[in-house]
Design a protein around this nucleic acid. Structure first.
Length: 740
RNA sequence: GCCGCUGUAGCUCAGUGGUAGAGCGCACCCUUGGUAAGGGUGAGGUCACGGGUUCAAGUCCCGUCAGCGGCUCCA
């Protein structure tokens, strides 16, 4: 008879098998009421699950009013809400919509479904679907689990004609799918089900579970692993949010499904709060603020994914670049400038071409050469563009000690097509700068920094405001160092990140350390070097003091890396910068320095762009500050608001005094009332408003109103304001601190 | 690239196959004021672009381009 161990270590013995609900009730009526599910030996089960053996059990409960709900409870509610939504959709839009897969997510849930041709599932139906969901929740139907032998259940699902469920069932039982064939990855794990070895006998032994929302055979039901909350009312409040499309199994050659997103919360108030937060977040979107504050512009005629930095945004960017450049100088970096294009041979040497050709703008080829190629077939042109001379191939193969350039890419000189690439990376240019002069170990490390603009052919559907673009400027640098110097240089990169994030008050970022896959042999460089470099990356990440994760298999083939990831206002994660150790580039470009032994040695190269690109970083910053930049970054730092035109003269004097102190300032010369001028300045998120009227003119004072304050802070002498603001700007303070 | 949605004034958006609309912004005029919108007048349109259906298209259909939400991808 089962003895149950509770999380606090206490045990309870029962004289017959017990359900989760029994256990909860044995502890207290309140707990029984609040319980949603149980965890048996760490595995979440329905509350009605029967335990007939000794186990450690924890109860998952709904939160008391005013208390935060546990992530586990939310996940349960949302998974259950996905069922409710699917039922509602089938009620509203028709049973011929085939359900595929509906899991909970971090902030809600979705359900992928196949909508037959000719049928439309559009957001017009959301009101009806939401109403139906509310009804189902109110009906408080029990989630009723029942099991069927695998083969029997499978036959039933096949008869029902939903191949997606058949596929789910087959995969749940460890059978190969009879309906889903993937060209890409046949062994790919099915949605959410554990991958198990193929075992035909398993189908007969296995059972499949179904959940009826109510009575099996009478109410709506779905093949589902569970677990669920006890009944629909325990979901609280749920709603459908948006439509998107998704591929079956994420496979673009497979069926296209409609993905319906929704979310659920324990109460309507919490749901409303979430929706309101979403709305607020949308207002912080850098694309919205960028337009309102005229920070940047994207013009169809210029091209998608190409950012035009308007004057206001350019100020923000310039301030940031100046800041970063000053920090780099402190760290011993030297600045370089390189052009926006480089010859094809450069990228054949580096390996970027043709390996990443799909992610690049096509090559720039001379007009005469194009004329010569006019009669060639497309594939012939590509062959010639991608071809490599014998000399270049021999050099690379020798230096990389492998057949890096295969024989079939080697062409006679007269067949080779010369041309240029818009540069997708800065490293080849920097490597050439390093190689342009001899280096002694005494000069190492050589740190070459450039705000280098690169161009990449991103898929059109991926472009997104400033966060995903086709042309961008990296805060790039390459550190050419000896192997011993690697840990110290990585540490230096991260301390730079720390300084800058701290100054900007950015705490919401995480760090991923990409390590090599222990089972793979694709990596270059000795395993001792790798061990040291990986250890250095981990140690450096640890010293940052933010959350970091080790990601085996995420390293580049040429070395381990550290990535910085931030979230935007709508919860999407963006990779900002990266620090990558590279054991390959030195070989590719035949780089060397003379060591103490008077012999040449290969330098290790560290690529680092801690903020990724100015575009993405500024986009993230706009959202971080919601457009309300600290004074040092603000496009306009002060606006002078004369009470009336009678005070215009003094307003201009104030402006002149501030301008002389290098403050970005403007006078509002409109003939509006002061109330209107205050409103406009507030909308423009100007840090300081200086209201000046006859009183101020007489006393040579300014009445200060800082952004975010409801009222004026009082008057202060003009000179004192200028001094205080200059100091705030010079020290890059995050808060607006100038006070009378 | 794929799926869905969207595209009307500088911005935010109404618009039922029958004369192109509002608010904000902008220009000018009145108002000269002490902290989140004073009043008036006016200018401003290839209804994204190209085809088609129709007596008639901003509206319906097809295509293209772009934006948005996802999917896939991301050195």
């Amino acid at each position: 008879m089962p003895t149950i161990t509770l999380p606090d270590g206490k045990t309870k013995s029962f004289d017959k098998p017990v359900t989760g609900l029994d256990i909860a009730a044995s502890i207290g009526a309140g707990l029984a009421k609040a319980a949603l599910a149980i965890k048996v030996n760490g595995e979440t089960k329905d509350l009605s699950h029967t335990i007939d053996h000794d186990a450690s059990v924890a109860l998952i409960t709904a939160a008391k009013p005013g208390q935060p709900t546990s992530p586990e409870a939310l996940t349960l509610m949302r998974h259950s809400a996905a069922h409710v939504m699917a039922e509602a959709i089938q009620d509203v839009a028709g049973k011929d919509i085939l359900l595929a897969y509906g899991p909970p997510t971090e902030t809600g849930f979705f359900y992928d479904m196949y909508v037959p041709e000719g049928k439309k599932l559009s957001s017009d139906l959301f009101d009806k679907i939401n109403a139906r969901m509310a009804e189902i929740i109110k009906e408080d139907r029990k989630f009723c689990r029942y099991e069927q032998p695998g083969s029997e259940a499978l036959a039933r699902l096949k008869a029902e004609g939903n191949k997606y469920k058949v596929d789910n069932a087959e995969r749940a039982m460890g059978l190969p799918s009879s309906v889903y064939k993937s060209a890409k990855s046949p062994a790919k794990e099915a949605h959410g089900f554990e991958a198990v070895g193929f075992d035909p006998a398993r189908a007969d032994r296995a059972t499949l579970s179904f959940y009826a929302t109510g009575e099996p055979g009478k109410n709506w039901e779905d093949l589902c692993r569970g677990p669920h909350v006890p009944s629909t009312s325990r979901i609280g409040a749920a709603c459908v949010l948006s439509l998107a499309s998704a591929y079956w199994h994420g496979d673009e050659n497979s069926d296209r499904l409609i993905r319906v997103y929704g979310t659920a919360f324990p109460s309507q108030a919490e749901l409303d709060n979430y929706l309101k937060q979403k709305e607020e977040a949308a207002k912080r979107d850098h694309r919205v603020i960028g337009k309102a504050l005229r920070l940047f512009h994207i013009d169809e005629t210029v091209g998608q994914g190409l950012i035009l930095w308007t004057p206001n945004g350019s100020i923000v960017r310039r301030e940031l670049q100046t800041f970063i450049a000053a920090e780099l100088k402190k760290q011993g970096y030297t600045e370089v400038f390189t052009p926006h294009i480089g010859s094809l041979d450069l990228y054949k040497t580096s390996g970027h071409f043709p390996y990443y050709k799909d992610a690049q703008f096509p090559p720039i080829i001379e007009r005469d050469t194009l004329d010569q190629l006019a009669t060639c077939s497309c594939s012939e042109v590509m062959r010639r563009v991608e071809g490599v001379s014998q000399r270049l191939a021999d050099g690379i193969n020798e230096r990389t000690n492998a057949t890096t350039i295969s024989k079939d890419r080697i062409l006679p000189e007269d067949q080779l097509v010369q041309g240029f690439m818009l540069k997708p990376m800065n490293c080849p240019h920097h490597a050439k700068i390093f190689a342009s002069s001899p280096h002694s170990y005494r000069d190492m490390p050589v740190r070459l920094a450039e705000f280098g603009t690169v161009y990449r052919w991103e898929q059109s559907g991926e472009l997104n405001g400033m966060t995903r673009v086709r042309g961008f400027t990296q805060d790039d640098a390459h550190l050419f160092c000896t192997e011993e110097q690697v840990p110290n240089e990585i540490q230096g990169c991260l301390s730079l990140v720390k300084v800058i994030f701290n100054t900007l008050g950015m705490k919401e970022y995480r760090v991923r350390v990409g390590l090599r896959d222990p089972d793979s042999t694709k990596y270059t460089g000795s395993s001792e070097s790798w061990d040291k470099a990986e250890a250095a990356c981990i140690a450096a990440a640890q010293s940052l003091g933010v959350s970091f994760s080790k990601e085996p298999g995420e390293a580049a083939f040429y070395g381990p890396k550290i990535d910085f990831v931030v979230k935007d206002v709508i919860g999407r994660e963006w990779q900002l910068g990266t620090v990558q150790v590279d054991y390959q580039m030195g070989n590719r470009f035949d780089l060397s320095y003379i060591g103490p032994d008077n012999k040449p040695h290969r330098p290790v190269v560290i690529h680092r762009a801690p903020f990724g690109s100015m575009e993405r970083f500024c986009g993230v910053l706009i959202e971080h500050f919601a457009g309300a930049f600290p004074a040092w970054l603000s496009p306009q730092q002060v606006r002078v608001l004369p009470i009336s035109e009678k005070s215009l003269d003094y307003a201009f004097q104030v402006e002149a005094a501030l301008r002389a102190a290098d403050v970005r300032v403007a006078v509002d010369t409109s003939n509006d009332r002061i109330q209107a001028k205050v409103k406009v300045a507030a909308d423009d998120k100007v840090p300081y408003m200086l209201i000046v009227g006859p009183r101020d003119a007489e006393n040579r004072t300014v009445s200060v109103r800082a952004r975010g304050t409801e009222k004026d802070l009082g008057a202060m002498p003009l000179d004192a304001f200028v001094t205080a603001l200059k100091d705030e700007i010079a020290t890059k303070r995050a808060e607006l601190g100038v006070r009378p």
